[in-house]
């Protein structure tokens, strides 16, 4: 079966399980509203810590930054301080731009060949645009959700909501980020299916999180704009979770549990998958190191002596010939 169909079906089945379960009786609501979220959060935290400690445990024996600009050398040659950092500060700037603006991806080009065999490189910013829209809207949506976990809601979260909801068409006001998230995820999904090379490299585990996130976003949108979930009831459940006084609410319907269940699945999925890239970028030695290993000695903790062919052995091999050729030797 096609990888993406497999992933789509998996997400649909998961959603159905939660929906049917929560609609059928009260006891599954305890499962989907309390037990699974706690379990998921525990796995997420433990798994993420384990992964990060695992990376941290392996040393960085060599200084191997990818240098993407002029090195620091002679004082009158202009150094590219961000793309080829020499100092820790330069590295910080490089990392910030990488993490928040996907600077490397921004360089993206597309290689084309004419019939005559001439190669062209077009700028290709769509992947960058899609990635920026997806990740930033995801972050805004996530931060906006803090209103369900805090009481009183901090001013900065309220401000974020105002900015995000500046378009007012009827009630409730529209949050742009939710739709941008769907659009971004759908773009990344369609691109993955449509571009032959990308489809070729895509695994079921690449489609699954996209469908999952689209599912989460759609159920969120459904609750807010269409089924009009009981916000007070929803907040009660969520506040109960974070204050460790879990409870369920009678007025909450199945869609809410689908939403929560898919989020739980996502949390469990993160530490065991490529979604750890959000932590991994900070550990990437080609980006987080300064290119100064000629000026400052980098230490390899496991550096060990190796067998070398010494000068003395070399001279022993060739002494006669060296003397004959007039080359200086240590032992005549």
């Amino acid at each position: 079966m096609k990888n993406y169909l497999l992933s789509l079906i998996a997400v649909i089945v998961l959603a159905l399980i939660a929906y049917v379960g929560a609609e059928a009786a009260t006891w599954p609501q305890y499962v989907f509203g309390i037990i699974i979220p706690y379990l998921a959060m525990t796995i997420f935290i433990m798994g993420t810590i384990r992964k990060i400690l695992g990376w941290a445990r392996s040393p960085v024996p060599f200084r191997i930054p990818s240098t993407c600009g002029q090195q620091k050398s002679l004082p009158w040659i202009k150094q590219s301080k961000i793309d080829n950092p020499f100092t820790f500060f330069g590295v910080i700037v490089r990392m910030v731009l990488e993490v928040f603006l996907f600077r490397s991806l921004f360089r993206n080009t597309k290689c084309k060949m004419s019939k005559g065999g001439k190669i062209f490189f077009d700028l290709e910013k769509w992947l960058w645009v899609g990635a920026i829209v997806f990740h930033w809207s995801f972050l805004v949506v996530l931060l906006r959700h803090l209103r369900f976990f805090t009481n009183p809601v901090p001013g900065c979260i309220q401000f974020l909501e105002q900015v995000d909801g500046f378009i007012q068409i009827g009630l409730p006001g529209i949050f742009l980020s939710g739709f941008a998230l769907v659009a971004g995820a759908v773009f990344l999904l369609v691109r993955r299916i449509v571009i032959p090379q990308v489809r070729y490299i895509s695994l079921a585990s690449d489609y699954f999180p996209l469908f999952l996130i689209i599912g989460i976003a759609l159920t969120g949108i459904l609750m807010r704009y269409f089924t009009k979930v009981d916000i007070v009831g929803a907040k009660e459940i969520l506040m109960g979770l974070v204050t460790f006084h879990p409870s369920i609410s009678a007025n909450i319907n199945g869609i809410f549990y689908v939403h929560l269940f898919l989020v739980s699945i996502l949390l469990v999925y993160i530490p065991f998958s490529k979604l750890m890239h959000m932590g991994g970028i900070f550990f990437s030695p080609t980006r987080n190191l300064a290119n100064n290993s000629r000026a400052v000695r980098h230490i390899n903790p496991w550096n060990y002596p190796v067998k070398v062919h010494t000068y003395d052995e070399y001279e022993d091999d060739y002494r006669e010939k060296m003397i004959e050729a007039g080359l200086p030797v240590e032992k005549e």
């Binding site: 990376w55 392996s58 191997i64 992947l127 750890m276 080609t286 496991w302």
Partner: peptide
């Protein structure tokens, strides 16, 4: 165990195709 680069690069590729 010896190279963080290797460990991290094994884990974090998202196969974006760039």
């Amino acid at each position: 165990d010896k190279f963080r680069s290797f460990k991290v690069f094994m884990d974090i590729c998202v196969r974006c195709g760039a």
